[in-house]
């Protein structure tokens, strides 16, 4: 390898227009929503993900794929790793090993929570977490997709268009009448709804919904089911829930987690008849 040649070649290489340097490679740089590449078959790839806390493996070689527009239900007994899985996807917990990609290009294990949220993953927590000292409307304002910088927040008031959007979202979840009440003063069910509304305001590509119907009345549950089904198709939705009735009413595909890995996957029918699942999860009722 002659030096001058290789130098010139390196130089040419460096100035190539499509050259991608390490720090700029997709996945390692902060991404704004436009950069999500959903060209592949799946929108979320989790492969061989392992997370351990003090020797206890919360996730154990978990492999899971979500397709664009899919509504996926995740079930599993307590401690099966459902919340830890969501923590890994949203960047709260870093896996010890394994890969986790959003679209073709975004390496979630290397991104901060903020970048992941901006890239298009919204999460509704198991325990409803809203901003208690803000009104319902302000909660939506905070969640609204758009620039999240300090100077923008200081100098750019909310536009009328955005105001309408917030109002209609509140209307969707039935909280329009509570728009000026403090979120902390809402009932548990209303907080659940408010948080769902907040996730909607984020306009996410992928929604992670952790136990959405806890504390809801029957009508509210039905409305939630409708809402989630309506969202699927346009967005990808991943629902973690304990309520079998509810799962049966919305699910196309169900994934059963057990001890940090996938035990079974398929339609509700298939899963329910899977002997492994019956043994560890549904088995209790049949025995």
């Amino acid at each position: 390898m002659s030096r001058p040649d290789s130098f010139a070649a390196n130089l040419r290489e460096t100035f190539r227009r499509d050259q991608v340097f390490g720090p700029l490679r997709p996945g390692t740089r902060p991404v704004s929503p436009g950069h999500l590449d959903t060209g592949g078959k799946h929108i979320l790839y989790m492969e061989d993900v392992t997370v351990s806390f003090d020797g206890f493996k919360a996730l154990n070689d978990l492999t899971l794929y979500i397709e664009p527009g899919e509504l996926r239900c995740i079930i599993g007994p307590n401690g099966a790793g459902k919340s830890t899985m969501m923590d890994v996807i949203t960047g709260k917990t870093r896996p010890d090993t394994g890969v986790c990609y959003f679209g073709q290009t975004l390496d979630l294990t290397a991104m901060s929570e903020t970048d992941i949220a901006t890239a298009g993953i919204g999460r509704k927590f198991q325990k409803p977490t809203v901003f208690p000292e803000h009104t319902a409307l302000e909660n939506l304002e905070l969640a609204m997709a758009g620039p999240k910088g300090t100077w923008h927040a200081l100098l750019k008031p909310v536009t009328g268009e955005q105001r309408d959007w917030m109002a209609s979202t509140l209307d969707t979840v039935g909280l329009l009448g509570e728009r000026d009440r403090l979120a902390g003063a809402l009932s548990h069910g209303q907080k659940q709804w408010l948080e769902i509304a907040m996730v909607l305001m984020q306009k996410p590509e992928l929604l992670l919904v952790d136990e959405p119907i806890a504390g809801m009345t029957r009508q509210e549950v039905e409305r939630t089911a409708e809402l989630l089904q309506g969202l699927a198709g346009e967005h990808s939705v991943m629902v973690v829930e304990h309520d079998m009735e509810f799962i049966r009413s919305i699910a196309n595909t169900v994934t059963v987690l057990h001890q940090g890995s996938v035990l079974a996957e398929g339609s509700m029918q298939q899963v329910q008849n899977d002997p492994k699942v019956i043994e560890v999860y549904l088995g209790e009722s049949s025995s």
């Binding site: 949203t90 709260k92 927590f125 803000h134 905070l142």
Partner: peptide
């Protein structure tokens, strides 16, 4: 300042910082 979105975001950071982060805010900047 406290009356602007910046102020409201700062209060949101005070009350639930990790939630604000999951909404896409760089809370440390605020």
């Amino acid at each position: 300042i406290t009356g602007t979105r910046l102020g409201r975001t700062v209060m949101a950071v005070r009350d639930a910082e990790s939630r604000a982060r999951f909404l896409g805010y760089r809370t440390e900047h605020y």
